[in-house]
């Protein structure tokens, strides 16, 4: 079961969101509306959305916009109205802390920006913070950004190291910079070795391996 924290904080900040529980008190979903009132550069959006967030046992919460405000033509919307918030690993690395999923952080860091990006894209025909390619390629792009490397092959090496070794700051960095880890990818590698994200990293490692062998014949 996904253990959630900061649910009260989320409901306090967005009082029109209502939690629904099962008979035995387990959180099933969060439903209602919220007001996006955010700024980036000179652009402000103040807009209301209806949303349903389903909470599952063994996967990340799944958010749907329920007021028909997200165009079916938008590239980052699932056919059932689900929101393509971001790469799962990015969400887990950001929101999973000591085995608890910070739902308020998830809402602020992924759900709210999703709607902001959508509005921005519809108005200006570009994404304010960019977007990721669909599927495995997008996952690889995330890891390239996380490890701040310029190739999928380097990502692969960093991930392989993450899974195979304990953190050793004096080791040479797997990215190939010839620097010691503590002076190079210390934070990223340390963060990726946290036990709560290990299974995600392992899963992504296998799919990156596929991308890598396709692109670089490794």
């Amino acid at each position: 079961m996904l253990k959630i924290k900061n649910l009260e904080l989320l409901c306090l900040q967005y009082p029109d969101l209502v939690c629904k529980y099962s008979a035995d008190g387990e959180l099933l979903s969060i439903e209602g509306s919220f007001l996006l009132n955010r700024v980036y550069g000179d652009t402000v959006y103040c807009k209301e959305y209806s949303i349903t967030i389903n909470v599952y046992d063994n996967r990340l919460p799944y958010a749907k916009e329920t007021g028909n405000k997200i165009s079916e033509k938008y590239p980052h919307r699932y056919p059932d109205g689900g929101l393509c918030l971001g790469v799962d690993a990015e969400i887990e690395l950001t929101c999973l802390e000591n085995g608890l999923f910070d739902i308020e952080k998830w809402f602020e860091r992924f759900v709210v920006p999703y709607f902001f990006s959508y509005e921005y894209y519809m108005d200006k025909h570009q994404y304010p913070f960019g977007d990721r390619s669909h599927g495995k390629k997008g996952v690889a792009e995330f890891y390239m950004e996380l490890f701040n490397v310029d190739s999928v092959a380097k990502v692969y090496k960093c991930m392989r190291y993450t899974l195979a070794h304990k953190y050793r700051g004096h080791f040479l960095c797997p990215c190939g910079s010839k620097k010691r880890i503590r002076y190079c990818h210390k934070t990223q590698l340390y963060n990726a070795q946290r036990p709560e994200v290990k299974s995600r990293i392992n899963k992504d490692y296998l799919s990156i391996k596929e991308v890598c062998s396709y692109e670089h014949n490794i």
């Binding site: 009132n37 980036y40 402000v44 103040c46 393509c84 971001g86 994404y127 599927g135 997008g138």
Partner: peptide
């Protein structure tokens, strides 16, 4: 959006906006 948000009436109707966190949408 831009026109109305830059107008004089905004402050009478809406609290000041908070900065948005950057995030990149991704689809499976």
């Amino acid at each position: 959006n831009d026109f109305v948000n830059q107008s004089e009436i905004r402050k009478s109707y809406c609290p000041p906006p908070k900065p948005v966190f950057p995030a990149k949408p991704w689809r499976e």
